[in-house]
């Protein structure tokens, strides 16, 4: 098992955000987590990334307990809803950011970044500053920046939430494509039912701090709590 979270609990003041949340993520799997705003999805991702500490519970990566490790030693990249490209760096330097931190030789950085930009359809935008890119292009650069460091796990926190419907659909396709070609293991958090089904090879449901991960998509659809049946009934009844 690549990533394992066991009985993660978290309070903010008196508010209970996570209640004994557990999950297992095998290599190469994309697990969608569906949940409403405030259900604890982001807190769970931040705990896995090391950006928040859990009150209790453990996180294991490749069998090693990483619960106490700082975020920069975990090799787990967390992507926000917004691309958050560093505004003082151009597209090339944004993608190269993590590689420069690792002090790779200049030639290697040049090759890796250009290869990534090409696979993301952005070779002609390398020299552009973030404000010169469209919303979709920025999100691609953000993916490139994350993929450049070859993370063991990619945590995606509603990455397409700020995009328009059309761009969102094309970005979903792009992510599926690069997830396959780069063998990405990831957690994809969303509040959109359709997106959760589309992006995940398995799906989990987060409700009031509790996480239920389903065996497969059929089990997810069959559970009344997920709202899939209601959705199907709604569209069938039109």
């Amino acid at each position: 098992m690549l990533l394992q979270a066991i009985d993660i609990a978290k309070h903010f003041g008196r508010e209970e955000i996570l209640r004994s949340a557990s999950l297992e993520l095998p290599q190469g799997e994309m697990l969608s987590i569906l949940g409403r705003s405030g259900s604890g999805k982001t807190t769970l991702l931040k705990i896995l990334a090391g950006l928040e500490s859990a009150d209790s519970g453990r996180v294991f990566l490749e069998g090693r307990d990483i619960s106490g490790q700082p975020p920069h030693r975990r090799n787990i990249v967390y992507l926000y809803q917004e691309p958050l490209l560093f505004p003082h760096l151009n597209a090339f330097e944004n993608v190269a950011f993590g590689l420069r931190l690792r002090r790779l030789p200049e030639g290697e950085i040049f090759q890796k970044v250009n290869r990534l930009l090409e696979s993301l359809g952005l070779p002609e935008h390398a020299a552009k500053m973030p404000h010169q890119l469209s919303g979709g292009q920025r999100q691609r650069v953000a993916f490139g920046r994350a993929l450049a460091v070859q993370p063991k796990v990619l945590l995606l926190d509603e990455p397409f939430g700020a995009l328009d419907t059309e761009t969102r659909a094309s970005m979903q396709q792009l992510l599926k494509q690069i997830a396959g070609s780069f063998h990405i293991t990831g957690l994809f958090v969303t509040h959109d039912l359709k997106e959760a089904i589309l992006m995940g090879s398995r799906i989990g449901l987060m409700q009031e701090g509790r996480l239920k991960v389903y065996e497969d998509k059929q089990a997810f659809i069959a559970d009344a709590a997920t709202g899939v049946r209601q959705e199907i009934d709604f569209w069938s009844g039109l």
């Binding site: 931040k46 990334a49 090391g50 950006l51 700082p70 975020p71 920069h72 975990r74 090799n75 787990i76 990249v77 967390y78 992507l79 926000y80 917004e82 958050l84 560093f86 505004p87 003082h88 950011f97 993590g98 931190l101 690792r102 920046r145 994350a146 460091v149 945590l155």
Partner: peptide
């Protein structure tokens, strides 16, 4: 100005606290 988010992102990309402060927070 979301500097916290930029710093956190940099941390998960491999920046130590000092590197994140110098390379991300300070320039922003």
């Amino acid at each position: 100005e979301q500097v916290e988010e930029f710093v956190q992102l940099a941390r998960t990309l491999g920046a130590g606290a000092r590197q994140a402060a110098l390379r991300v927070a300070a320039p922003l």
